[in-house]
């Protein structure tokens, strides 16, 4: 409940403040968002499975974001940033789909 409220608060804050993204962060922000979404869906799934753990969620959230950012940064340094970020997005997308499938099975039993 608190998490949902916080998410809404963040969205509202983003709409209200309307900040501009610093150019240094531009390549990493989308990847970080996708990685965080992955962690959130994983957390929801774990919640439904009854094995949700706060610490686990926090750590996986942060590490997901950091690892995604590091991969993209590394890719940029190696000159394959575009491909690597695509790869990261694909992997995270697959995981999100898997987690959503599990959530769906929990909610709809189908």
């Amino acid at each position: 409940m608190i998490a949902v409220l916080a998410l809404f608060a963040g969205v509202l804050l983003g709409v209200w403040l309307d900040p501009t993204v610093p150019s240094a962060l531009l390549p990493y922000l989308p990847i970080a968002v996708v990685a965080a979404l992955d962690a959130v869906f994983g957390g929801v799934r774990a919640k439904l499975d009854g094995i949700f753990d706060d610490k686990q969620f926090v750590i996986s959230f942060i590490s997901n974001v950091l690892v995604a950012g590091i991969i993209v940064y590394l890719g940029d340094q190696l000159g394959v940033g575009g491909q690597l970020s695509t790869g990261v997005v694909v992997v995270l997308g697959v995981r999100i789909f898997g987690n959503v499938a599990a959530i769906r099975r929990h909610l709809f039993r189908a």
Binding site: A6, G10, L13, G14, L29, A36, V58
Partner: peptide, 13 residues
């Protein structure tokens, strides 16, 4: 968790 999710919503928007 709340802070992280708020951050997520913020960055998402």
């Amino acid at each position: 968790i709340a802070v992280l999710l708020a951050l997520l919503g913020f960055t998402l928007v």
